[in-house]
């Protein structure tokens, strides 16, 4: 079923062994005079990181039951640091001392996890709407640098595949299966939410849209928007009506976003919607608790592995 059908009908490091200064981010190599091993990752500005629950707007303080089972940003960065640490350490064994992936944690998302509370119900912050429309705030428009291993020997050792590692060795040193990438994966595992958690997080949204209370609240919001001169029947449609790749929002976009948030406030849409989703998730979690707890246990094992790597790194 397509989205339109659905809605139309309803309407530090942890001290990296190998960190680099923030000012060096984006380069493939270490800054002059600083090897990847010499600069700590605690130069990352953690004040930019998302809080566990939104700190402003109509979703301030809201969190959904499933978030316990999702992967939060702080755990993501811890895992990314360990991944980077293992990559760099492994590559150094083969003489690639300048193997220098970007430092994690420099360009965080606005949301803490896949629940995406700041924008789960569309625009929800009047201040942001009046400044940026549906665009991200400028501080969140930056992206992590694009980086990848160099082609040739570096890439071959990293992936464990290529003419430079014929016979399974490079410069006489045995390359691990799958290269340094494979070695890291085996040691660290993958930090991802389990399938059950992802299902609960997503299905509660579609289920909630079937609830009469949510449908009524959306209808009230739509009537409010129409009264303000913006006839939308779906809270997610306004953002799709503007080019969000422009550097700043147009005055029209800001006007619609302001009306959008004002109507959500006037009609109580988010409060109703969040309440219905919370009830749905509580039922789903109770029904799937064994599987969800097993997923959480596996995720915590991955998290512990990352913590061990980072702890070892901090002693070096």
């Amino acid at each position: 079923m397509r989205k339109g059908q659905v809605l139309t009908g309803l309407f530090a490091a942890t001290a990296l062994v190998a960190g680099v200064a923030v000012s060096a981010i984006g380069g493939a190599g270490a800054p002059d005079g600083a090897s990847p091993q010499t600069v700590a990752a605690n130069a990352v500005d953690e004040s930019k990181w998302p809080s566990r629950t939104p700190e402003s707007g109509l979703v301030k303080g809201l969190s959904l039951p499933v978030e316990k089972y999702l992967v939060g940003y702080t755990d993501v960065v811890e895992w990314q640091r360990a991944q980077r640490d293992l990559w760099v350490g492994c590559m150094a064994r083969f003489g690639f001392d300048s193997f220098n992936p970007p430092v994690p944690g420099t360009e965080p998302p606005i949301e803490f996890n896949d629940a995406n509370m700041p924008r789960r119900y569309g625009a929800s912050d009047a201040t942001e709407a009046s400044r940026y429309g549906y665009h991200l705030p400028p501080a969140q428009q930056n992206e992590p640098p694009v980086w990848e291993p160099a082609s040739g020997a570096e890439g071959a050792v990293f992936l464990g595949d290529g003419p430079e590692v014929e016979g399974g060795t490079y410069n006489g040193v045995t390359v691990p299966e799958g290269g340094c990438r494979g070695e890291t994966e085996r040691r660290l595992g993958a930090l991802v939410p389990g399938d059950e958690a992802s299902k609960v997080n997503a299905s509660s949204m579609t289920q909630s849209l079937q609830q009469p209370a949510v449908q009524d609240a959306i209808a009230d919001w739509a009537a409010c928007m129409k009264d303000k001169g913006h006839p939308f029947d779906d809270p997610y449609k306004p953002a799709a009506g503007f080019d969000l790749t422009t550097p700043t929002a147009s005055s029209e976009e800001i006007e619609v976003a302001e009306a959008d948030v004002a109507c959500k406030s006037e009609t109580g849409l988010i409060k109703v919607w969040y309440g219905e989703e919370t009830a749905i998730q509580n039922k789903e979690i109770a029904a799937r608790k064994t599987a969800l707890d097993a997923e959480l246990s596996r995720r915590n094992a991955v998290k512990a592995a990352a913590q061990r790597v980072n702890s070892e790194g901090s002693d070096k």
């Binding site: 606005i110 996890n113 924008r119 992936l159 994966e185 991802v192 997503a202 953002a239």
Partner: peptide, 15 residues
């Protein structure tokens, strides 16, 4: 659009 609603993240495997 505009990073709204439910979401699903995927970690980078680097190659």
């Amino acid at each position: 659009s505009g990073y709204q609603s439910i979401s699903q993240a995927f970690y980078g495997t680097c190659g």
